[in-house]
């Protein structure tokens, strides 16, 4: 459904995302995980064709049924795809709705823009139905409210309703639950999975939370330093990681194991600033297993959909 090939994103001369390739099959749910600054959100924005002004993308992003490459496509084409075939839910629900427009009108607008509703009255009815689908109660009253009268969880549901309004083929979610309470988070994740399943839509789900990936996704891509360092089925990657970075992430998420000093595991050091990543393997300055060989960029080992880019994979040459 979605095929990303050799995607590079750069701010001027500064590379932010390098040579990212992956596919998302029809109806497949793929997670994209990594720490802040690993380039996950930029990758998603580049796929969606909505990068910040001074950031440019190169490479290829293909969507089934669209003859042109989405990278470098006209605003005209992208506007037609956005909100109809490609939809996106962003991280911050508190500020993502227009404060001076009634909630129901903001949902109805999504139906009107792409002429999927016959007229205003039909769009309004559709909007109420969509709000019901994301399990909001008293939609007639709630729809007439303004965003400031809704909670964060309610707002994110409204944004999900907007994203699903035209039954997209691909839904991209960029940390949609990060700003929400844990209790609200689980309900929203359910709604997202239900929403894409009902529409047989593909999902690209960005998060830094491994537990969320395990709940929502079938396959996972691990990103670090603007590159995909490992990919595979969620069950395999999360139980027997190959890349040292993935291993570090999993150890850091394990709240039951501690090191010899009785502290939780952590990955040494911090994510470098963009452009400060080492040459060769991007993880080598934080990796306990790094040696001279890692000065050379590791190739991709394994299948395109399941493999890693590490010279010394876990359970490998040791």
């Amino acid at each position: 459904m979605l095929k990303v090939d050799g995607l590079c994103v750069a701010a001027g001369e500064l590379p932010l995302v390098s040579d990212v390739s992956f596919t998302v099959g029809s109806g497949e749910r793929v997670g994209l995980i990594g720490e802040s600054g690993s380039g996950k959100s930029l990758t998603a924005s580049a796929v969606f064709g909505l990068l910040p002004d001074d950031v440019t993308a190169a490479g290829s992003v293909r969507l089934d049924g669209v003859a042109e490459d989405l990278v470098g496509a006209s605003e005209n084409l992208l506007s037609r795809l956005r909100g109809s075939r490609l939809a996106m839910v962003f991280q911050e629900p508190m500020t993502a709705l227009n404060p001076s427009m009634r909630v129901v009108d903001q949902v109805a607008e999504a139906r009107l823009i792409h002429r999927t509703a016959g007229d205003r009255a039909a769009a309004h009815r559709d909007a109420l139905r969509l709000l019901e689908q994301v399990r909001l109660r008293d939609v007639a009253e709630l729809g007439n409210a303004y965003p400031h009268q809704l909670s964060g969880g309610q707002r994110q549901r409204v944004l999900l309703a907007i994203a699903l309004a035209n039954d997209p083929d691909v839904l991209i979610c960029d940390e949609p639950t990060t700003a929400l309470d844990v209790t609200v988070q689980a309900q929203l994740l359910d709604l997202i999975v239900k929403g894409v399943k009902e529409r047989d839509a593909s999902l690209l789900f960005i998060t830094h939370d491994l537990a969320v990936v395990a709940t929502v996704c079938e396959r996972v891509l691990v990103m670090y330093g603007g590159r995909i360092v490992e990919s595979g089925l969620v069950a395999e990657v999360l139980t027997s990681p190959k890349h040292r970075y993935t291993k570090g992430l999993l150890d850091a998420s394990d709240l039951e194991s501690v090191d010899e000093r009785g502290r939780l595991h952590a990955i040494a050091g911090a994510v470098p600033a963009a452009g400060q990543f080492p040459s060769g393997c991007v993880f080598r300055n934080r990796c306990p297993r790094a040696d001279d060989r890692c000065r050379v960029q590791p190739p991709w080992f394994g299948e395109p959909t399941a493999g890693h880019a590490c010279w010394h994979p876990v359970g490998g040459d040791e």
Binding site: F48, S79, R82, F90, E92, A96, N98, E109
Partner: peptide
């Protein structure tokens, strides 16, 4: 952000 949402709608 809401302007980005508007763009995301198409």
């Amino acid at each position: 952000d809401y302007l980005r949402t508007a763009r995301a709608k198409g």
